[in-house]
Design a protein around this nucleic acid. Structure first.
Lengths: 117, 117
DNA sequence: CCTATAAATAACTATATGGTTTTGTAACCA
DNA sequence: TGGTTACAAAACCATATAGTTATTTATAGG
């Protein structure tokens, strides 16, 4: 996949709150089976499987095998690439953050103030 | 707009290469008129106007007025928010980057190796 | 006033997306 | 062998997206 298509797929995958929630859960809990992933959502199992396909196409998750289960595994490389694209713009959102770690500190304060997503 | 909708709109806006190219150009050149933005693309003016509407909905650009022109201006705040979401995952893509600035150095090496997007 | 320029809007088309229900399949279990 | 679990695949539907061409609106200049 060429670079731009990978970015297309990654940003598209991240544009849906269900998919972001799935990634957040995988980050917290490690590998999770499809039924377990589907449980918190008011949505059918095939709907979740479709979301997983979108994530898989972007390379954001991979699938394993454990008996009947197909555990979903977070693959964070595309997240790094997306971050790499965004990082180019850091100087535009605030000139006062010369060092990236200062920006991170600031972002974390904002997040704490706004509550988690 | 609630936080999750803003992220939806931002990531969706970033999922198209034409729109990313528009943002990149605005970052490089400052405010640009619609015709000038459209020029490099094999695409009609209304198509570009539609892309601008998507970017505007996400808060990524604002519009000015200069005679008949409606200069497009980069608004980087949503990029900061998107980066904030992604930054949460930094520890997953590589444990070796304790400090964010180290990660940035590494990303820049990768970018140089891969060519620009 | 008339005309030109810049851009938005409208109307239309094809394809993609996000969901559904139903059916099929692969692996375990009694 | 037969049933159950976990998931994928198929078929379908409504809406959204990304593009087109044609038209309209707003501003400027002669």
């Amino acid at each position: 996949m060429i670079d731009t298509e990978r970015l297309d797929a990654t940003f598209h995958a991240l544009s849906d709150p269900t998919r972001r929630a799935i990634l957040a859960r995988l980050a917290q809990e490690g590998d999770v089976a499809v039924m377990d992933l589907a449980e918190p959502f008011a949505m059918s199992q095939p709907a979740i499987s479709k979301h997983l396909k979108v994530l898989e196409k972007a390379g954001l998750v991979s699938r394993g095998r454990d008996a009947q289960k197909r555990p979903v595994h977070l693959e964070a490389q595309p997240l790094a690439e997306a971050t790499g694209w965004l990082i180019e713009y850091r100087k535009y959102w605030s000139a006062q953050f010369g060092r990236l770690d200062d920006l991170l500190d600031e972002l974390q304060k904002l997040e704490e103030a706004a509550g988690r997503n």
